[in-house]
Amino acid sequence: MRFLAPLLSAASLLWLGLSAGYAQTKPSTTWNNKQCAVVLTYDDAIDVDLDNAIPALDSMRFRGTFYLIGSSPVVAKRLPEWRRAAQRGHELGNHALMHPCDGSLPGRGFVTPDNDLSKYTVSRAVSEVRANNVLLNAIDGKTARTFAYPCGDLQIGGVKFYDQLKNDFVGARGVTGGLQTAAEVDLTNIDSYMINGQTGEQLIDLVKKAQQSHTLLVFLFHGVGGGHGLNVDLKAHRQLLRYLKAHEKDIWVAPMVEVAEKIKTVQAGPAAGKVKG
Score class of each variant (00 low, 15 high):
G64F: 10
G64N: 13
G64M: 11
F66D: 04
F66N: 06
Y67T: 00
Y67D: 07
Y67L: 10
I69V: 15
I69K: 03
G70F: 07
S71N: 08
S72C: 05
S72N: 10
P73M: 06
V75E: 07
V75H: 08
V75G: 07
A76H: 13
A76E: 14
R78L: 11
R78K: 13
R78I: 00
R78Q: 14
L79N: 02
L79Q: 14
W82A: 13
W82Y: 12
W82G: 04
R83A: 15
R83I: 10
R83S: 15
R84Y: 06
A85S: 13
A85N: 12
Q87S: 14
R88M: 12
R88L: 14
R88H: 14
G89W: 10
G89R: 05
G89H: 11
G89A: 06
H90L: 05
H90C: 09
E91A: 08
E91H: 08
G93A: 13
G93T: 07
G93I: 06
N94W: 07
N94K: 04
A96C: 12
A96I: 00
L97S: 13
M98C: 01
M98R: 09
M98N: 12
M98G: 01
M98K: 08
H99N: 13
H99L: 05
H99V: 08
P100D: 05
C101E: 07
D102S: 11
D102A: 12
G103E: 02
S104L: 03
S104A: 12
S104Y: 00
S104C: 01
L105R: 15
G107M: 13
G107H: 13
G107W: 12
R108M: 15
R108K: 15
G109A: 06
G109C: 07
G109E: 12
G109N: 09
F110H: 14
V111I: 11
V111L: 10
V111D: 04
T112L: 13
P113S: 08
D114S: 14
N115R: 15
N115Q: 14
N115D: 13
D116F: 11
D116R: 06
D116L: 08
D116T: 09
L117I: 07
L117R: 12
S118C: 04
Y120D: 12
Y120P: 02
Y120F: 15
T121A: 14
V122H: 04
V122M: 02
V122K: 03
V122L: 08
V122D: 05
V122E: 09
S123V: 08
R124N: 03
R124V: 10
A125W: 00
A125C: 12
A125M: 15
V126H: 06
S127A: 14
S127Y: 00
S127M: 06
E128K: 10
E128D: 13
E128H: 10
R130K: 15
A131L: 12
A131K: 11
N132H: 00
